[in-house]
Every structure is written in C-alpha cells, then in structure tokens.
C-alpha cells in the first residue's frame, strides 16, 4: 500500500504489558481515539511516524508519474482535471506531514530521510507512465488500491491520522472515477487508443497488486500494528477485495486482466488470481525499479535547487521580525 512493509515494534504478550500500556491497549480496544498530547507507548509513536511518513512521501513522489503527462494532456479539460488531481496529491502530502508532526517529527526531518533513502515511498511510483492511458490506469488502479487501504484507515486509532484519512478518501474516490473515465474513453476509442488502454492495464496490474505488500499472515509486525489499530485489515484481505472490485470493472471496459489463472471461486465468493512477482517487488523496494533513480533524483534536485528559496524566505521573516521589534522600541 502507500505504506508497505512498515516495521512495527515487537508484539508484547498481555502479561508483559505495564499497567500504563495495559490501560492504553484498553482504550484502543474500546475504540477510543488517541490524541497527540496523550500518553502512548514509544513503539506506537515510532510505528505511526514510519507509516504516516511513508504515506506522505508516497503522495508527493506520486505527483511525478502523473505530472509527466500534464504538459501532454490531450484536451484542455483533461489537462485541468489532471492538474487538479496532482494538486490534491500534494495537498494529501501536506495533511499527512502535519499529522506526523503531531507525533514530534518535523516535515524537514522526514524529508531528509526520504532523500537519503532511509525512508521509502510506495513501490508503485517507481513505474513509468508511458502512454496517456497510463494516466487513466493510475487513477483507476493506483488510487483505487489506495482507497481500499485508506477507507479502513479512517478507523485507525490515532486521531489526527484518522481525520486526515477521512478528508483524503473523499478526494481519492474522485480521482478513481476520473481515471476510470479516461480508461472508458480509451477503451471505446480508436483501435490505437484501445491498444494503449490494454497496454496500460498489462503494465499496471501486477504493480497495483504489489501496493498491498507481501502476505502478512504470519508477520509479527502486522500483529502488533493490528492490535494498535494502526492497521485494520491484512494485506491479503485488502488485495482480495481490490481484485474482486476491479475484475468486473475491467470486464465492463472490455479489457483483459493479464492473468491466465484469474477465475471466480464460488466457494470463497471471490476471485482466484496469480500473485505478483515478489522478487520484482523487492528489487523495486531496494532501489532497482524502472524509475527509482529518476523519482528520488527529481525530489532531491527540487529540494537542493530550492534551498536558496527557503533560506530567502526565512531570512526575510527574521528581518521583518527585527524591524517590528525595533519599531516597538522606538515607539516606547
């Protein structure tokens, strides 16, 4: 997902919990929200910072693959819709960095970790957008997968994160509909457009499935995160839901999901499907995806090229403050 492979702290058994930790867990079990100034275990705080930070980084790196087509959007309306979407994603980044700040970590600290590679962003944004239908596929599949994850996170135990998710989800469903609308136009268009749509689905299908992360049935990290309600569903549950939702949508478009093993399973009332190539996933996470260098490079360059801008604003604010102070002294 936008937060894949987030390491949680080790799970303690009920007997190992201190009275304070026990009381905290009880609050979570009762469905109470934890607010910034309240006591929380250090592991809870750290895990949340990793998860929210990774999610925020994904939103801002996510501007790049779609930004790649803004100047080439085929109509003024498509251009405007895409601009608005990319602007929304930057806004999501902003809310999430603000949510992380309530846990005592600054946006600049998190960005430093993104830039030096010690924090990750979603693997999906390391894939290229090669034709216009990719912009449709990203909205439909990538925002679609993001929603799958974020809808459940509206119920997460940490108040500011939960509220950010509620705000973000509304916009993400809008993005998904717009993406599907592009796919529809392409799938019903000329033979060349239809080929672009199929090509986009062929390339984005498995990377979209990877967004949920590898199976976490037996992961200790997931168990602790679920106990803390930082994570609500398992990766496999979400992936299944996503496939079940998406297959009929692809059929409606007249496009073929690139999986020979895809089949309705009446018994489980869901589709059977092929796992993505997890070795590819780990390569992408390790920095070897098709666009890792460009994506991170672009963000680092933007940050470094912008240093004089940020310094200039800071210097101006300090001068303005000094002038106000001097004026006050003179007035007295």
């Amino acid at each position: 997902m936008y937060a894949q492979l987030v390491k949680s702290e080790g799970m303690k058994s009920a007997a190992e919990l201190s009275p304070q930790e026990r009381a905290f867990q009880d609050r979570i079990d009762r469905g109470e929200k934890i607010e910034p100034k309240e006591w929380m275990p250090e592991g809870y705080r750290k895990t949340l910072i990793r998860q929210i930070g990774q999610h925020a980084h994904s939103e801002i790196v996510g501007q790049l693959p779609e930004g790649n087509w803004i100047t080439r959007a085929p109509t003024l309306e498509r251009k405007a819709i895409l601009l608005a979407k990319v602007q929304d994603e930057a806004g999501h980044g902003l809310y999430l960095y603000c949510a992380a700040e309530t846990l005592g970590v600054s946006r600049d600290q998190l960005l430093a970790k993104l830039h030096d590679g010690s924090m990750k962003y979603s693997s999906i944004f390391n894939y290229p957008t090669l034709n216009w239908a990719d912009i449709g596929a990203v909205g439909w599949l990538v925002d679609g997968a993001a929603i799958m994850n974020q809808v459940q996170l509206q119920k997460t135990s940490y108040g500011p994160y939960s509220r950010a998710m509620i705000r973000i989800c509304k916009e993400e469903s809008f993005h998904q509909r717009q993406g599907y609308d592009i796919m529809m136009k392409m799938a019903q268009g000329t033979a060349e457009q239809k080929a672009m749509a199929q090509d986009a689905l062929d390339r984005f299908w498995y990377p979209a499935l990877m967004m949920f992360g590898p199976s976490d049935k037996d992961s200790v990290h997931s168990t602790q995160s679920m106990a803390w309600k930082i994570k609500i569903n398992t990766n496999d549950e979400l992936r299944q839901k996503f496939v079940d939702q998406t297959v009929p949508q692809a059929e409606y478009l007249g496009l073929k999901i690139p999986d020979p093993n895809l089949k309705w399973n009446e018994e489980k009332k869901g589709y059977d499907f092929s796992e993505p190539d997890w070795s590819e996933f780990f390569e992408v996470i390790a920095g070897n995806g098709p666009c890792n260098k460009e994506r991170l490079g672009a963000r680092v360059k933007a940050w470094e090229d912008g240093a004089w801008f940020r310094d200039g604003l800071l210097a101006h604010a300090e001068k303005a403050q000094a002038r106000r102070a001097a004026a006050r002294v003179a007035a007295e």
Binding site: I60, Q63, L64, G67, I70, T71, L76, K79, A80, L83, A84, V86, Q87, A90, G91, G93, L94, Y97, R107, A298, R299, K301, A302, W303, D305, G306, A307, F309, R310
Partner: peptide, 25 residues
C-alpha cells in the same frame, strides 16, 4: 504546469498547480 512535483517546497507545488489550473480554466 511544468513545475508540478519539482517546486522548492510543498506549498509551492500546490500553489503553482493551482495557478496553472486557473490559467487553463
């Protein structure tokens, strides 16, 4: 719009996209 995702701070990414959007409108 060429700035999208490449601005010196996140607030500028948002503001530039917004400006471009107004102009295209």
């Amino acid at each position: 719009s060429e700035w999208c995702g490449h601005a010196p701070v996140l607030e500028e990414d948002i503001a530039l996209a917004n400006t471009a959007l107004d102009l295209i409108g």
